[in-house]
């Protein structure tokens, strides 16, 4: 079993574990939004879980690194923190911060990260850019809030994992990317109203059962 040194703490983990998972399992928190242990190929899209590894020139996302024996890792250097904070502020700049009206208030991953990084939820440095409309009600049972969503893709992953195929997808591109549930027939085949794995996995409350809101 590989032994590694993270922030001067020695940890021992199973071979083949990702560095992020190894840290999380050993009580070392690294901010992350898009990672799930069940993903074979982590998407590394949220760009939050940067760490510094001795011998590597630049900070690297810990979800894409497999642990090696004698790895020396730092999770809180200046350059790592700077990336954490910038990525987080960028995400907040497109997030409609309205915690007290949000059903995941106090359970939200963004609140947790804000506290951890000591960054205020209201962005000071960047202008806010929100999408129109604020809510997508196309899905028969779910409402989707694009201005809460961080596009981590966990909902798509978990739906596919459970049902073989996902009724959710990324749609459009670039800044306009959203989660979409296009195609009514497929949705009805899965009985979404009874499943809600996607709602449960969402780290930021971007998906919610319609009836839960009433």
């Amino acid at each position: 079993m590989p032994k590694l040194l993270v922030d001067n703490k020695e940890i021992e983990v199973k071979e083949g574990t990702t560095l992020l998972q190894a840290c999380l399992d050993n009580g070392i928190y690294i901010p992350n939004l898009c990672y799930l242990e069940s993903m074979d190929d982590p998407s590394a899209s949220c760009r939050m879980c940067f760490v510094e590894i001795e011998g590597e020139e630049k900070p690297i996302t810990s979800c894409t690194v497999t642990v090696k024996d004698d790895m020396v890792v730092k999770t809180d250097t200046l350059s790592v923190r700077r990336l954490h904070r910038t990525a987080f502020r960028l995400l907040l700049s497109v997030h409609h911060v309205d915690c007290k009206n949000c059903h995941v208030n106090k359970k939200c991953e963004l609140q947790r990260i804000a506290k951890y990084l000591e960054v205020g939820l209201k962005p000071k440095h960047l202008e806010q850019h929100l999408k129109e409309p604020d809510i997508d009600q196309d899905h028969p049972f779910l409402d989707y809030y694009p201005n809460r969503c961080v596009l981590c893709g966990k909902c798509i992953h978990i739906c596919r994992k459970k049902h073989g195929q996902s009724v959710l997808t990324f749609a459009k591109r670039g800044f306009d990317t959203v989660i979409s549930s296009y195609g009514k027939n497929d949705v009805s085949s899965l009985a979404c109203e009874k499943c809600v794995v996607c709602v449960d996995i969402c780290p930021v409350g971007a998906l919610i059962l319609k009836e839960a809101q009433e």
Partner: peptide, 22 residues
């Protein structure tokens, strides 16, 4: 047509839509 494609390829319509909008 998106529906026809989804049926023909045996995938969900939203997959087709996700790719087409990209």
């Amino acid at each position: 047509t998106l529906k026809m494609v989804a049926e023909h390829l045996g995938i969900f319509e939203c997959e087709v839509y996700g790719v087409a909008t990209f």
